[in-house]
Design a protein around this nucleic acid. Structure first.
Lengths: 219, 219
DNA sequence: AATATTATTTAGATTAACCTAAAAATAAAC
DNA sequence: GTTTATTTTTAGGTTAATCTAAATAATATT
């Protein structure tokens, strides 16, 4: 079907282009995949020839319907493996991404079907990201981040926007996990920081960057 | 460390050279790995330069100590994944080999350590083959096959010599699984077949080929 | 609007893993 | 013990995925 590299490009293009199906620039894609712009151009052209992406020279790329379908399969596999690693193998949520990056390229449909069954058909991965079903359908990603709340609002952490190991370890240190309740006490325009209470604990300060990477369901 | 292809070659060389550490011919290796003799020579020379095999032009190859260690790690990963697939994901023993061939190349030592723990440190895979521990040590492979028993002997099935899907499905049909008790009733020199009783059931006939691929512990 | 800067693509090379065909070495046959 | 057949190696080429450097297009600046 597809090589692991092709799958990685499709996934990255799909994710970067977002809900609005915006066109993704070669440089953005190359940076995401930690490769050169020349390599990205090369692969984009290969994917374009296979009809997996829409490509306009110098303008950017987009997944085509078939490319999106392929990307969603990779994302499904990735997220199911992450659930397995955390729930069954007892990994911490910051350790699973790199391993799932490898596991996601094993394409046996039976394997994924049985894994999904074994995990009791999970709907979200350990970072709160929705898992596409076998047809590629999944729950919408949340849109509200902690920094969008008004002073005095109470919210529940439902997913992380950044799932880098560093960020997740930092959240661990702050005792912020999925399901945690966060009350926004105050906003300081001067340095863009937030004063919050986590699980009804003492007031602490969060940077704007951190607050912008925590998806919240308003309560 | 090693590419998946390098690992496949090391594993094949290790297995083909057996307990006696015999030298393996290029053609045998190429046939096993379903590739050309030229490709095999190519890879043998690469592995030799890296000190992973002992190689004498036109004579054959052998794993060196470092090559053997690498091969045992791959075999360990392969067999652990097979246990997972059968015990946890409920695959039949004939379906797991191909999938484990892919999973075995994921090298995260943490992943394997946690998987091993999750599976409660299994000593044997679903075909009865011993699983090397983290240091590469494992139980010896059995030596007695069903066709070595004497008339009237009773034995227990402890592993399969051939683990091809076809053979395993055939054993399923005969109701022969690991742990089954087999009594050798008679041997017919004329066509090399055996009359046996499986789990104290009715007498049936097995070919010499089948009898030679079933490892037995004499009871 | 012309020029400078940045982004993108093309050109040309490299590496791993393969292939076929030809050459060389070993083993088998007469 | 030559000759023939087989096995193995070498030579040369291909594809996927990468790279750097050069060329071209798009964007920003003055």
């Amino acid at each position: 079907m597809f090589t692991p590299t092709e799958e990685n490009y499709l996934k990255a293009i799909y994710k970067l282009s977002g809900n609005e199906k915006e066109f993704v620039s070669t440089s953005k894609l190359a940076e995401t995949l930690d490769t050169s712009a020349a390599s990205a151009t090369d692969m984009i052209q290969r994917l374009s020839k296979k009809g997996l992406v829409h490509y306009h020279k110098y303008q950017g790329v987009n997944t085509s319907p078939s490319g999106e379908k392929a990307a969603l399969q990779v994302i499904r596999r990735h997220r199911l493996w992450e659930v397995f690693l955390v729930q069954k193998l007892k990994f911490n949520w910051n350790e699973v991404h790199a391993i799932a990056e490898e596991l996601e390229h094993i394409k046996s449909p039976q394997l994924i079907a049985q894994l999904d069954k074994f995990l009791a058909h999970p709907k979200y991965d350990p970072h709160g990201d929705p898992i596409p079903d076998a047809e590629g359908k999944m729950a919408p990603r949340p849109t509200t981040t902690l920094n969008m709340l008004a002073t005095g609002d109470l919210g529940k952490v439902i997913s992380t926007k950044d799932s880098s190991s560093d960020f997740l370890l930092f959240l661990d240190k702050l005792n912020i996990s999925l399901g945690a309740e966060i009350e926004l006490l105050d906003y300081f325009a001067y340095d863009g920081t937030y004063s919050v209470r986590i699980n009804h604990g003492p007031a602490i300060t969060l940077s704007g960057k951190v607050a912008g990477n925590i998806f919240i369901e308003k309560l």
